[in-house]
Design a protein around this nucleic acid. Sequence first.
RNA 1: GCGGAGGUGCCGGAGUGGCCAAACGGGAUAGGCUCAAGACCUAUUAGCUUAGUGCUUACGCAGGUUCGAUCCCUGCCCUCCGCACCA
Length: 915
Amino acid sequence: MEENQATNPFPAIEKKWQKRWEENKVFKVKLDESRPKYYALEMFPYPSGYLHMGHVRNYSIGDAYARYKRMSGFNVLYPMGYDAFGLPAENAAIKNKANPKEWTLKNIEGQKKQQKLLGLSYDWSREIRTCLPDYYRWNQWIFIKMFEKGLAYRKKGLINWCPDCQTVLANEQVEDGKCWRCKSQVEQKPLEQWYLKIKSYAEELLSELDNLDNWPERVKIMQRNWIGKSHGTTIDFKIVNEDGSDTGKTISTFTTRPDTAFGITYLVLAVEHPLVTELTKGTDYEKSIKDFVSEVKKKSIIERTAEGKEKTGVFLGKYFINPINGRKCPLWAADYALMDYGTGAVMAVPTHDQRDFEFAKKYNLPLIVVISPDSYELNPDKMARAYIEEGTLVNSGKFNGMNNVEAMEEISKFLEEKRFGKKTTTYKLRDWLISRQRYWGTPIPMIYCDNCGIVPEKEENLPVLLPEDVEFTGEGNPIETSLKFRHVICPICERDARRETDTMDTFFDSSWYFFRYCDPENKKEMIDKKLADYWMPVDQYIGGIEHAILHLLYSRFFTKVMRDMKLTNVSEPFARLLCQGMVCKDGAKMSKSLGNVVDPGSIIENYGADTARLFMLFAALPEKELEWSDQGVQGAFRFINRVFRLVENTEVISLNELSEKAEATLENKDRSLIGKTHKTIKKVSAFIDEFAFSLAIGAIMEFVNDIYKYREGKINEQVYGYAIKNLALLLCPFTPHLSEEMWERIGMNKNHKQFISTASWPEYDETKIDEAAEAAEKLIEDVRRDITHIIELTKKSPEKITMFISDDWKFEFFAMLKEKMKETYDVKTLISEFMKSDMKKYGTEISKSIPQFIKNPAKLPAIVLSEKIEFEALTDNKENLEKLFGCKIEIIKASQSKEAKAKQATPGKPAILIS
RNA sequence: GCGGAGGUGCCGGAGUGGCCAAACGGGAUAGGCUCAAGACCUAUUAGCUUAGUGCUUACGCAGGUUCGAUCCCUGCCCUCCGCACCA
């Protein structure tokens, strides 16, 4: 759209307003108890250096809503910041010898510039950059607090290791066995790492999901699945030797099916289970088991968990006693038991569990049926699959004959009474591994002292600054190359000690940044409690679905931790959540790898930010996928121009209020426009409330069409001014620059300080919505169009016009037509008479005009008039009509289609005919 | 496999028993205006047909309920998303 640039006034207009907003600090907010607060927030971006369409969409949605709320009288906190720590900066350092800090800060500047070009109404004075010590010192501070409370701890365990990123990953960051960022295969390694005890909040994180009424259902479901609560029973088994002699060891298993306890025929341990080596040490089985274990461990997670993969296992040479029936069964190790779920051991009931069934068949382990279907009998030798439906207990001692659902409760009660086990709840959620062996992150403020052990840094020594004297070789953690950093004095015994060189997961940074926006410059505290309690929770949070688990779960966890530390009173950080859909082009997600990206910069440059924003909001509802369309962008641009033309010349505008007296004398078309103004305000407000921006914009477009129609006739300055003023207000959330410009041009911004951005959102008056006037207007409009059409057609084929009659027109209207025809035979005069007349008195029920007046213009023209009543009148005036249109007129009766239709559909039976 | 969301015309999307060939907006096509483009105005935008009317086929597919279904019920298919050897 090269030609746009020469004539497109918007880039200049946008720049002008952006500058004025900034100079006048229009969007700066502070605590104000007199107004209700509203906290609108978009997920802060990672500063990769450029904005993509997904960002633009995210911000367009957020800004529209923030502006709407601001105009509606709320004290709106709407901030922006940067999630500035992370691997890309470090990778750039390795690749290009760039300094991660400079690289990041430069990218932030670039991104910020683009955000400013969009005209987003952020309070920039609250900007946050997580890579700056002012911010990350509070990461360190709260980490120490967590350590003191036992919520942060160090543990050795099998961890996920990404060989490409050269660091460990949290479970949440492993997708499909691959690294969430670089997609390389994740390995398992035993390492000692820092963890946060998110698991101790599992129950609350789960149960409070039910109160998040304004979160998308699917996000809640994903979190529920991730937390993965299941109720069951732990059963303890004595481990015995082949001859039945006690080994002195026991093993517990977790099951959700205690009703099947009599059907246990073997038990499997995860290969990582400590008992596996313990029990086999020095036995004949030692070597074969070691081989098996190392074989399994060699396999990747993918291989081990692949669908339909055959399960493998090995007998441990030991047995156990099922306490419920005293049965001695073999103990196995198998790859299908997972160390990190339940107890790392599975009690196997092959008849009633598909996995156990397959395993038992393969290794020839016995099968005992304990649940019988009601209609037939199960034969363990002939079963092709496990029976997992409901049934009646058999082979289960005193529980025989009981329904299995009932038996779950009864058997676990029995086990508990006999102290063979107890009811247990488990969660799939595991503690959050937060240490990373990377440079560009918050240093973990811990010290290793040979004397005192693991000691936190003293609070007054915070922040522990990231060292600058490091080398980026691509091997190992760069921080370790800084000797100055590593060496430290123990805060307790003051001897030489070693500083932790791991840094924090960047998700740590983003788990509480929304608190910091409330009080970004506080040097003394993480956040002032009063400010936190004023602004929090975030009333509306907007971001991509990709964070449904990771960031959104961590943030909820942090908020609860902070509440328990009395830093805030809120329990849930985000009251309402919106996950916007993807931006697609040619049917696929816009992505660099597919090469179907459209650069927001070029759109802003060629059309302006308002066009980009309007298109984004108009093209699809926020949650839905948005298909990019160049025509759509042009459509948005055309619309903006169309609106702009309304104010290019403003001499017909008056901003004075209409007096009651003046209002009483208004014509129909004026009343109609006032009514439409109120109606549009009502519609747009309701649509924005439910985030139906595309529909809100559609309603505004309709309104603009009406204004244009209104302009064709005589204009009442006040009525027109009222419409334009409200149009500007309604558009402000979507096209703020255009609105400001309109506001100024119509004289609402007297001293360059009365911004529309802070003006009040218009209110509508239901009583002003004048449907009757509107309908009358529409009718006149239709008649006018029809008559114009007739004139055109008579020019073409003047020999004959046929008039048709239908019941759509009211008698009064026809009478008027008749009346007018007595006076004049001039079509133009007739039309203008129509235009001037007060149609309201001709009835409020005039609702429909002549539909599809003439379908084929090449054929004879026709005018459709009301049947019955008017028929006579019309024949009366046949001559006049002929004179009027200057041609022959023929009158034919129209058929009663509706009634006929209803009758047709009602052979014999009564139909309800609504008309 | 389990769980969730959804399938309406070129697109975005309304509609939740008759007023629905389907609101509203966008786009497209044609005509007008214009030297021309843009803008603007008007009409058309499932098919056939008519002077208007009408008819046929239509709201994922197949049945059912009903005088009548896009809307209610049943079954099926498809798409998208999440989880996935979770004991």
